[in-house]
Amino acid sequence: MVHPDSETTASARPSRRTVVAVLGAVASGALLGVQRPAAASAAAPGLDDPAKKEIAMRLVSSAENSSLDWKAQYKYIEDIGDGRGYTAGIIGFCSGTGDMLDLVQLYADRKPGNVLARYLPALRDVDGTDSHQGLDPNFPKDWRKAAQDTVFQQCQNDERDRVYFDPAVSRGRSDGLHALGQFCYYDAIVMHGDGGDPTSFSSIRKRALRSARPPAQGGDETAYLNAFLDARVWAMKQEEAHSDTSRVDTEQRVFLRKGNLDLNTPLDWKVYGDPYHIG
């Protein structure tokens, strides 16, 4: 999971209601009784289109790092005090949640003897805790050194895609969602993961399905995404570190209200009150 950078504390700017949007509903046909067929998603580029994927990376970085320069985050590492140990890299790999261990193992497989390989035993020991045992004092320094290596950068890209991006796009496509809906799924998986707890991505989706159906099940896309974002906001508010919901309220809701289901540029949004633009 990704978290804010060191420029802002977790309490000041945590890393993580609903008005039915008339404008978005009209754009989607909801108020006219028109349902978008699930096949419509195939007519426009999905989130895995290179240009759309770049937009997705920049949107997440605006919320996590107050910057559109997501590639500058390979070197990011800190403990923000959320119980997950060290958080690092472009997607916030955490020493306490297992994804950092998987990443460093991949790096060791591809480049044996790298600067982080010696921390593998410690990362196994601290998995599931917030402990730094065996990592301090040099792990952050060595992470930043490794981040200069293009092999490690590619490992971060590949693990981001394997664990977060590809599953989100696949699930979004199967639900008949356009690029915006796929991004809503991706951002949720990044923050909440996809385990079995009540605030995981799968639990958020199940909560949304109680009140709306996705296009693949004959539902209206805008109505379903509003239900999904309602469920997402509920999940975020269950944890203090995620209780700022502006990445939903003044980002994803903005695009949805405008009926921008294909996530087309230009895009204007705010996170934590800061404005962003992609032309």
Rank of each mutant, 00 (worst) to 15 (best):
H242R: 13
S211P: 07
A88I: 04
L256R: 08
H132V: 00
M191L: 14
R36Q: 15
D262A: 10
D142T: 13
V26E: 05
Q154L: 14
G273R: 09
Q35F: 05
Q182V: 05
L229H: 03
E240P: 04
S61P: 02
I90Q: 05
D268R: 12
Y74E: 14
G219V: 02
G85D: 13
Y276D: 06
F183V: 10
Q73K: 05
A44Y: 06
S131G: 09
L261D: 01
E78C: 07
I278V: 13
G181A: 07
R124Y: 06
Y186E: 00
F93M: 01
A56Q: 07
S246P: 12
Y74G: 12
H242E: 13
T250G: 05
V271S: 04
R173T: 13
D197T: 08
A117M: 07
D197G: 15
L68Y: 14
L177G: 08
P275E: 13
R253W: 11
E251P: 01
V190R: 04
S67T: 14
R173D: 03
G279Y: 09
A27C: 12
R16P: 11
L68C: 10
H277F: 02
A179L: 02
L120S: 07
L135H: 07
A235F: 01
K71W: 00
Y86P: 12
N260D: 13
T87A: 14
M57P: 03
R36Y: 06
G196N: 13
G259P: 11
R124I: 09
H3E: 14
T18Q: 11
W269E: 02
R253M: 14
L101G: 10
T18H: 10
L59P: 04
D249L: 15
T222W: 00
G83W: 05
V126T: 06
E251F: 12
P167E: 09
G172K: 11
G46T: 11
G193H: 03
D161A: 12
K141V: 11
D268A: 11
S243H: 15
G273L: 02
R247C: 09
Q252I: 14
Q148H: 12
M57E: 02
T18V: 12
L209D: 01
K237V: 08
G96M: 05
L229Q: 09
G193R: 00
P45T: 09
T245Y: 08
Q148Y: 07
N226W: 03
P121E: 01
H277S: 07
L180P: 01
F255D: 07
A25I: 00
Y164V: 04
F139A: 09
L263Q: 02
L103M: 07
K270L: 10
C94R: 06
D99L: 00
A212T: 05
A231Y: 00
D79L: 08
A235I: 07
G279H: 12
A21E: 04
L47E: 02
L135M: 00
A25K: 05
P112N: 11
S67F: 02
L103F: 06
I189E: 06
D49N: 15
N260E: 06
S61T: 06
R213C: 03
P37H: 04
S95H: 15
Q35Y: 05
